[in-house]
Structures are given as structure tokens and as C-alpha cells.
Design a protein around this nucleic acid. Structure first.
Lengths: 224, 224
DNA sequence: CGTCACATTGAACCTCTTCAAGCGCCGTGG
DNA sequence: CCACGGCGCTTGAAGAGGTTCAATGTGACG
């Protein structure tokens, strides 16, 4: 097993949970689409965004970074429901109260969009249709994740990497934006299994691991 | 291991895939809500409703029976994405084409609702909002299913039973509407594991199995 | 330099799968 | 009418894959 000569980038996985530092509120945008309706809020690593049970009066868009949603009601090990990367919307489950909690997995910028602000707009019918499209997209993502969880460990990890690659503009070098624990909790595996699987894929030169938070897919097509 | 003196009901799990027999089309309803916009179509057991790749020009509501959605693209063992019971809507994933296939698991009646018919109505803004609510509900269901798949075999089966109970009006005796294979493919287990787990739960008198397609939860609260 | 969080690696254990056999119900046909 | 065969379900024993427990490695920061 080759010892990795790690050259870590600036994505240092380090807990720096200072309080959230809201950027000053900009005047309400008159933009046509849901995004960019407000200035993004900056979050540190592992900072909560909302909790299960909170009133669900806003939806959210990831400007940069990464957000995990999870369920606290079920005791035992943490189980992630979803991961959201730059460009993704979350908090779309509907209902009066959130059914999951949301936290950043790394330093992130998040747009917070009040539902009332959406509905108050002249073009609110278009907004609802926009919301519908976003929710349907999240549904498709959840269903694809379901399929992934019906497979074995190696296929889960590979599926995760391919999904991440697709969501990160198709580059072969992808930034994970999260720790092994997040990956494991998202895939229903242990961190040991995730680590071993990645190591094996690297030893088979299917991937490279320049640093723990970076993965290079040497042959994305081969991974299927 | 007590031999079960099975007294089969009329839910005989038997292939009887006669051709679909559409009920005569009723005049377009002027009802206020999405459901009951058309007369239901009757399907036999294991009959396809739509296939992955078909144009998604309709949404569907289960009047009675049960529908499974699954993915055929990934080779290997069949993997169910979702199960829909009486009262549930499906086909809400959005997009121009279906990303899953849908089949009945048992004789069923299904409402087929054209999207165009929805959008053509005077109150189509309300219809879209209705669609949004239904899609968000399906999303919540998919996310709950995700959580289930992150657990062990016994918890999956118990979670499945509790989910079914909740969806069948909270009665303690529930009809499964499907075979062990469907359950296994939905939970990511083998039929043997499902069968064994149910047998063990019965031997611990947590449940009773009057017939393979019927389950009685002796103490729903205890199962958590 | 020492500490801390995260990641990796090894070995024993356990759960679920795989393979195999048998049972019960039902429909069919001799 | 009963024998046969298909299908679904159950049960057992061996095997593989992932977890658990434990130790070590690595980089960042004070």
C-alpha cells in the first residue's frame, strides 16, 4: 500500500464553528428566477442551518460549499438523508415544519429565500411552477440515491463518486467537500469501509487520491 | 418452528395477466381536486403501466391495489424505487420522460390524469400548487425510505410494516398486496431474509401471519 | 514539539447472502 | 378424482462481505 505523499490544499478539514456571519441584506432583487433573490449568508464548517421541527418558512440555495440533511429522531448512528452542492436547492419537503435538520459540511454560502417573498411576487404562478420543478428534481435525486443504497459497498462508493462528478460540472478531479464520516453516513457504510474501498480503487488505478478531500477519476467510463 | 396452517384468502398470489380492461371513459369531471378527474382503469397482476423512457404526459393515482416503480437500466437484480398504495399519486418525477417503469403488484384500479388536462383548466394555478404538494409528499416518502435503507435487516422489515400500517388507515391487520420478492427488492434484501425475519418476529409474537399476504401487528408500539 | 481530528490499515466477528432442499396451495389434465 | 407441475414461501447450512475493535499514520495548529 503506497504511502500517500499528501499535499493538502486549502480545503483543510478543520472545525472552525464560529457564529454565522450574515452578509448585509441587499434590496429585494427584481430578478426573474428564484435564485439570487437575496444575498448569500456565510456559514462555517459544521454549522446548523435549520433543525427538524423548525417552522419551514424558507427555502435555501447553496451558493458554494456543501450541506447535509439528516434525521435526529431516530437514535443511534447518524444517518444522512441528502447532500446538496453549489447550485442545489433544499428545504423543499413541504409541510409546515422541517422533517430533517440541515448543516454545512464545510464552509459555505447559502441563499435563504422566504416562501412568503416568493408568493408575494406578481409572477408568483411562475414561482410555484419553478418550485415544482425544483422539488421534482430533488425527488429524482432521492430516488436515484435509493437505488444506490440497494447495492454493495463498492458500487455505492463508485456511484457516489460518479454522482459527485456529474454535479461538479463533469470534471475528472472532484472536491468532496466533506469528511469520510459524512460519506459513510450518506452511503450507509462505515468510515473504514469507505476508506478501504477508496484505497482499493486507487490501488487498481481507477482513481487517484491527491488528498483525502480530492479524488481524480482516472477513467470515469470504466467505473460502470 | 410451528408449521403454519395457512388458510388462504382470496388474495391468492397467482399470475393472471389478462390484458388491461379499460373502464368506459366518463365525461370529464368538474370536480375541484386533481383526483377523480377520470374513471379508473383496471389492471391485472404484474401488468405494466408505463415504462422508463416513455413520454411522461400523465400522472397517476392508485384507486385500489398497489403499484411498484423500478429501474431497468441497471442490470442485475431488480430494484424497486417506490411502492404506491390506494390514494397515492405517482409519476410525479417531472421531466419529459419517465425515469422509472411502473407495474401493478396485484390487481389494481388506476386513475390516469393527463397533464394537459390539468393545465387546461381555469383553476390551473391551484392545480400546479396541488401538484407541488403531491410531489413534496412523494419526496418526503422517498427520504424516509432512504433512512430505512441505512439500517439493518430487521429494522428494515419492521419499518416497512409500520409504514404499510400507517398507509393502510392504521389498522393492526394489514394487507401486503405484494409478494416477498417485491418486499425484498424494495428493502434491498433477499426473499429469504425477509421470510426469516418475518418468521422470527412471529416466533417472538410481535406479529402474526394468518397468510403470506396478511400481517397482524400484535403490538405496534413495541416494534420501535 | 505535542496534541487533536481525520484517515488508513489489520484481524476477528457477525450479519446477510448464496445455494439447496422441502412444503403448501392451486390449476390443469390424465 | 387424484396426480402432476408451477409458483410462492419457508427453512437449513456454508460462504462472502461489511462491521467492529484496535492500532498506526498524517497533516494542521497552538
Amino acid at each position: 500500500m503506497p504511502l500517500r505523499t499528501t499535499v493538502s490544499g486549502n480545503e483543510t478539514p478543520r472545525l472552525r464553528a464560529r457564529g454565522r456571519r450574515a452578509t448585509p441584506e441587499s434590496p429585494v432583487s427584481t430578478a426573474r428566477s428564484i435564485d439570487s433573490m437575496s444575498a448569500p449568508t456565510s456559514y462555517g464548517r459544521n454549522e446548523p442551518i435549520f433543525f427538524e421541527g423548525d417552522p419551514a418558512d424558507s427555502i435555501y440555495k447553496v451558493e458554494s460549499g456543501c450541506v447535509r440533511t439528516y434525521n435526529t429522531l431516530d437514535s443511534g448512528p447518524r444517518q444522512l438523508v441528502s447532500l446538496y452542492l453549489a447550485g442545489d436547492f433544499f428545504g423543499l419537503e413541504g409541510g409546515d415544519h422541517h422533517v430533517v435538520s440541515a448543516e454545512t459540511t464545510t464552509a459555505s454560502k447559502i441563499h435563504v429565500i422566504k416562501r412568503r417573498a416568493l408568493m408575494a411576487r406578481k409572477d408568483n404562478a411562475a414561482m410555484i411552477r419553478n418550485l415544482l420543478d425544483l422539488t421534482a428534481k430533488d425527488l429524482r435525486r432521492a430516488q436515484r440515491h435509493n437505488l444506490l443504497l440497494l447495492k454493495g459497498a463498492q458500487e455505492r462508493v463508485i456511484g457516489f463518486l460518479l454522482d459527485m462528478q456529474e454535479r461538479e460540472h463533469g470534471q475528472n478531479e472532484i472536491a468532496l467537500h466533506m469528511t469520510r464520516r459524512d460519506i459513510a453516513d450518506y452511503l450507509g457504510l462505515t468510515i473504514e469501509t469507505v476508506s478501504r474501498t477508496l484505497s482499493r480503487l486507487e490501488s487498481e488505478s481507477a482513481i487517484s487520491l491527491p488528498s483525502p478531500w480530492r479524488v481524480v477519476l482516472n477513467d470515469p467510463g470504466m467505473l460502470n
